[in-house]
Each structure stands twice: as C-alpha cells, then as structure tokens.
Simulated assay, not measured.
Amino acid sequence: MTQFDLSAVGFVVLDTLCAHADQMPPRGGATFVDQMTMTVAGTAGATALDCAMLGLSVRVATQMGRDPMGDWLVSAMEAAGIDCGLVSRNDAVQSPMSMLPIGPDGARRAFFVPGTSNTFTLDDAGIEAACDARIVHLGGTGLLAAFDGAPSLALLQRAKALGRTTVFDLILANDETVRLVEPLLPYIDYFVPSIEEARAMAGGGSPAEVAAWFKARGVKNALITLEGDGVWVDPAQGDAFHLPAHQIDVVDTTGCGDSFTAGVITGIAKGWDIRQTARFANTVAAHVASGLGSQGVLKDFDSTYAAMGAWPVKEI
C-alpha cells in the first residue's frame, strides 16, 4: 500500500508573469499591464500543484535554494496539501525563477534562472521514498543537470520494479535531448510531450509518426499535445486517435502542457480508460489557458469534470 497517489520528481520553478506585453519597456521607463501574478510552475511543480487541486494526495521531490523564492514555493505547495518532505534546500544556489511577459495571443517569452534545477538529485533512499506512490511522474529532463542520466534511469527502473505507473515529461527538448531520454523510454507508461519537443527528438514527422517512433522504443502510451489543436493519443492497446481542444479565449499558454499531464495523472488515478483520461486532460489544460499562470482558472475536480461535457470543443 503506497502513501501517496502521486510523487512528482524534478523541475519546480517560481514563475512571475504579466499580461499582456509584447515588447520591452522603454529604457528607464515602464510598461503598464493589466495583471501580474506568481505561481508554482515547472514540469514537476505545476503538475503536482494541479493534481493536488484536483484532489490527489501528492508528494514533491526537488531542490530549492534557501531563499525567499524557495520559501514561497514550499509554502504554496504545502498550503495545497502537498508533502514537501523530499524538498531539499541548497545554501549556495538560488531557487529556479522565471519572468514571463505574456503576449496578447497568450504566447510567452522567458527570462530564466535554472538555479537548483541544476543541483537537484536523489540518493538511493530518496529514490525509494519518491516511489512511495501509485504514480511516479518525472518532469524536467533536459534541465536537471545532476539528475538527468543515471539517477533518472534508476528512479524509473525502481518505480517499475515496485509496480508503479510511470509518467514522463521533459522541457526545452532539442535534437540532443534524445540521448538523455532514449534509455528511459522502456520504463515509461505515459509519455506526454508537446509536438515540438517530440519532433525535435524524433527527427520530425506527423503526430502519428512521432508517437510511433517513441512507442517503437518502449513507451507504452504516447500522448502528444498539439497546442491549440488538442492531443494525438497512441495507446498501449487499441487504435490511435485525435481529440480536439476546447474552444476558449486563450489568456496565457504557460503551464498548459504541465496541466494536461496533471489531467492524465488524475485519470490514471481514477482508473479511467485512455480516451476519458485524455478528454479530461484537455479540459484541465483549457482551464489553465483561460487565466494567467500555471493554474489559470483551475479550481477543483468537480467543476473541471463538469466543464468537460459543457465546454465546446473545436471542430476537427
């Protein structure tokens, strides 16, 4: 019997965001914007917080600096009910932080300090503790300098040896990231990259071709997010399919992929089939895109589930 529904391992960052801005302020001057916020973000952090908001019991394993940014991130996660017992603190390196001006079309640009995302790792005892969950999510490969490679492989191998369900996402992938990812693929049950990241690693191709490329290398279920066009799903069993996104007014696309992953994890935890899971994940992502930051207008499971049937979807 595991203690948690989810262990989210890897990249957590403090995002500060403003909307809307499409150019730098004048030198020595200011640009007035409508709103600003800060959020728990990152391929592990945003996914973990969204899952907690959707009712799952969650543990996070990452590293923060011993600084006000790290204090805020830990307090925000704990306020959402997330267990932060595997969050280590570093006295010499600052917490990861981003400044994100969001354009009128919802697209983002980023000023980014990797900070402790470069120094985070887990020893054998940490890996064992991180596997004390029904679902183990590794998020942030490509930005986890100390944890990429052998430690990440050890985490996923141990998770599978214990019978856990594994979920995987990465960040800022390019054609060199594949050397870090390929050894992990046979231990990944659900792979949830964006089409841009997936194409960069697979060498191009349609969503169907890209998903098949990863499945041929061991991934069980490939769910390729297609920005505003929904998701392409190539499941472990049955035929591949496309699900369209919801028809919404986009405010900010920050965290949409991370929130989609949270929807997938929630569906897995509830025992849904892959189509129901992907539909719900689309709805979670739509809630995030409808507001500013990695949680957007997301509130809880019940309201999100109701929106899954009520919100219109784009025509295919």
Rank of each mutant, 00 (worst) to 15 (best):
A79C: 00
L6N: 04
Q157S: 07
L153H: 09
R59W: 01
A146Q: 10
E315Y: 06
H287C: 13
V40N: 12
T31E: 08
D234L: 13
A262H: 00
I127D: 04
G228V: 04
A307M: 11
D5M: 00
G126C: 13
G65A: 02
C256K: 05
P244G: 00
T266M: 01
D189I: 06
T261Q: 06
M1R: 15
G257W: 10
A306D: 07
G238M: 12
F120P: 01
Q295N: 13
A19Q: 04
T177Y: 03
G267W: 02
T165N: 03
R217H: 10
T62P: 07
G204A: 09
R158Q: 15
A245D: 13
V210D: 09
D239S: 14
T141G: 04
G271A: 07
G291M: 11
L86F: 02
R89M: 13
G163M: 07
G29T: 10
T166L: 07
H242A: 13
E315F: 10
L153A: 11
G29K: 11
K215N: 08
A245P: 06
A307G: 05
R109A: 15
Q3N: 12
F168G: 03
A245G: 06
S7P: 01
D22H: 15
G85L: 14
R199N: 14
Q295D: 11
L170T: 14
D67N: 05
F111D: 08
V74G: 04
M36T: 15
A202E: 12
M97A: 08
A236P: 01
C256I: 12
M64E: 04
I274H: 10
A286V: 02
D91V: 08
R89C: 06
Y190S: 05
G65M: 06
G10I: 02
G106A: 08
I248F: 02
P151W: 01
V136Q: 06
G228Y: 11
V136F: 02
L6A: 01
G255L: 07
I102V: 15
G203A: 05
L292F: 03
V233G: 06
A198P: 03
G142N: 13
A216T: 11
E176L: 01
S290W: 03
W72F: 15
D105K: 08
A21N: 11
M308A: 12
G126K: 03
T304C: 15
V113E: 10
V40H: 09
A145K: 15
G42A: 10
G296S: 12
A245T: 06
L156T: 03
T253Y: 06
D169I: 01
W272R: 09
A80F: 04
L143V: 07
I127M: 01
T277R: 09
P235L: 10
T225Q: 06
L185D: 14
L243C: 00
T121M: 11
F111R: 05
I188C: 10
D22I: 05
R217C: 10
T119C: 14
V313S: 11
L170E: 13
G29L: 13
G205F: 01
A236V: 02
T37I: 05
E196C: 04
F147L: 14
D5C: 00
T39G: 02
R108W: 00
G291I: 04
A154Y: 05
C51R: 02
S117T: 08
F168H: 13
A200Q: 14
S75L: 05
I82H: 04
E78C: 10
G228Q: 14
V113Q: 09
L54K: 03
A133R: 00
A262D: 00
D124G: 07
T254C: 15
A125Y: 09
D50L: 02
